[in-house]
């Protein structure tokens, strides 16, 4: 069997951030999500909003995980979907910025209120709502920063969390304008 082993060695799975430009029409998101569930790929995070009203285009930022062969497969399969126009692999392209927004409700009384405000200040979170027994904080930044903040909040009291998922963009002066014009 030794000569046949080469395919059995499982390659390491890595996290990849993909950025898709799609038509903003009913069913597009269902096609993308259906592809992932139907073919057994992972979705770790997904955000989608219209970015170009004139051309009716949306961006989907998507974080997935897999071996390089799986990731290549995901990208090619995504391109088969008719309303998917551009699939960019930001992780492969180079440096990029990944940002996320979290809304954190914390129910807290007594001395921990001061502690909560102190932590929020350190993280540069904004306080959006205050009652005598609760706060709502808004925090943006890297997912890892949000994780750390939420962990601290949880240790201070009962929490309720709402996160947007990752939005991503490549660094530097290159834009997609030319690619979008070809659509």
């Amino acid at each position: 069997m030794s000569v046949y082993q080469k395919n059995e060695v499982e390659e390491v799975e890595t996290s990849r951030t993909l950025s898709l430009i799609v038509d903003n029409q009913p069913g597009t998101l269902a096609r993308v999500i259906g592809l992932f569930s139907g073919r057994g790929y992972n979705i770790e995070s997904l955000t989608v909003t219209e970015i170009d009203k004139m051309r009716n285009l949306s961006r989907i930022s998507l974080v997935t995980r897999g071996t390089s062969m799986t990731i290549e497969q995901i990208k090619s399969q995504l391109l088969r979907i008719v309303p998917v126009h551009i699939v960019r692999d930001l992780t492969l392209e180079g440096q990029f910025i990944k940002s996320e927004l979290a809304l954190v409700k914390l129910v807290v009384k007594g001395a921990n209120r001061v502690e909560a405000l102190r932590v929020a200040e350190t993280f540069r979170a904004r306080t959006l709502d205050v009652t005598l027994s609760s706060f709502i904080f808004e925090l943006t930044g890297k997912p890892s920063k949000l994780d750390a903040f939420i962990d601290l909040m949880r240790s201070l009291g009962d929490t309720e969390i709402s996160r947007t998922g990752v939005s991503a963009i490549s660094r530097g002066n290159k834009t997609e304008t030319k690619l979008l014009d070809q659509i």
Binding site: V3, Y4, M69, E72, Q73, S76, Q77, L79, R80
Partner: peptide
């Protein structure tokens, strides 16, 4: 069985669908 498929060969694949290439056999 995939791990015993044409083990000592160089493989060339022509396909109109990019997703068919390297899907199950690299």
């Amino acid at each position: 069985r995939l791990n015993a498929f044409a083990p000592n060969s160089k493989k060339i694949h022509i396909d109109v669908d990019k997703s068919s290439i390297n899907k199950v056999v690299s």
